[in-house]
Design a protein around this nucleic acid. Sequence first.
DNA 1: GCCTCCAAAAATATCGATATTATTTGACAT
DNA 2: ATGTCAAATAATATCGATATTTTTGGAGGC
Lengths: 221, 221
Amino acid sequence: MDAMLDTEGKETSATHGAYRKLREMILTGELPPGQKLKIEQLRGMLDTGASPVREALSLLTSDMLVERIDQRGFRAAPVSKCNFEEILMLRCNLEETALRKSIANANSAWEDRLVLRHHHMKKASQKGALDFEDAHKAFHMALLDNAKLPLLLRYCSQLYDLNIRYRYLAAGGSSYKKRDINAEHQEILDAALDRDAESATRHLIDHYRRTGEYLSSQMDS
Amino acid sequence: MDAMLDTEGKETSATHGAYRKLREMILTGELPPGQKLKIEQLRGMLDTGASPVREALSLLTSDMLVERIDQRGFRAAPVSKCNFEEILMLRCNLEETALRKSIANANSAWEDRLVLRHHHMKKASQKGALDFEDAHKAFHMALLDNAKLPLLLRYCSQLYDLNIRYRYLAAGGSSYKKRDINAEHQEILDAALDRDAESATRHLIDHYRRTGEYLSSQMDS
DNA sequence: GCCTCCAAAAATATCGATATTATTTGACAT
DNA sequence: ATGTCAAATAATATCGATATTTTTGGAGGC
């Protein structure tokens, strides 16, 4: 019998656990872009077998965070200014579509969810950066999820992750926090609660473009 | 050096082979929507081990052709009218974006590629339906690939596959061919060669909407 | 009769080992 | 010296077996 050393009781399968940990390591830059991902090495870091690691890498491939080179293993997806700009463009396009649909379907249950997520995000911003990231994503996804379009939501989520990877890579988002992010979020929230699609999408896209321009300028230097 | 034109059977890895075969079986409906996908059963059908099958299923999960149920295996993704309509909407949105960019980047090399693909598709339409499907996708992707936006192209390719699955499910596309598909393709091609983005996108989207309406009506009955 | 619970069966998830394929190293010839 | 080739090394891809978990089926209680 195995001793139950399960300190974290939430992981159901080894594959899913490996997936989450690897994903975080790639997003935060702990596994830098382009780095060769050797099974043995990861097996050690994650303290699990080779099969879960391989499956997790397969899953990350479809999230476009890992590249598979035929018969030559895996590597962390590379980054480029081009790639970043494409992500930004697609986000603006897809999130605008989703937000408009969300607002078109607006009801009080959704408004409650939005207010709650926004509140949690503000609270989390005083705690650790990692908690904030989770709450930040939850807020943005809540803006979109009332569109009730699962494919679109999935793409938005993927692109969100690809984007925050660039934020982490650009110096941990130090100056990202200097901008008045809170005010920007408040404007988006207020417009959504007013069911003003024009205003909400404009604020949302400005929010992304502003972050995008800063990150883009960082990548030149 | 390698003058050998690999006309067929160039399966490098068992995983990739299993992926292709499973993908085709799901797209054509040989593995119907919602069906439980048991490893042992597939292992027999594909004549390979359990590991390649599992990895192939993982990859198909990210193509949204397979669903993974935690600790309970895999199943072919279900279908619904809702899902179909979302695919149609996203295709119209994303392919319009891609086609406009493609045309903006137009050059003679791209035009040559288009003409060639269109020619191959016409030729293949007199052969088997399976050859035609490949050539049809190649033509549509060629329309988009000059945008030089890999993420967008990938999404379009994914959505294309999800869409043709519905075509196969709706009676093998018998009446699909009754419409004058050739004329529609010719119009799109001509507009693209004229570098007329308005006309090209309008024809492309009409092309999808027409197919979409027909399939949608089929799903009601 | 219907529900609950436990044992048997089946299927999945994971491990350890092997075969295959890529990469490196170093000797040899030019 | 330099480039090529072959053996040694390292890493991947795959297999077979085991451990876990879910599902099934039936016996006993209400």
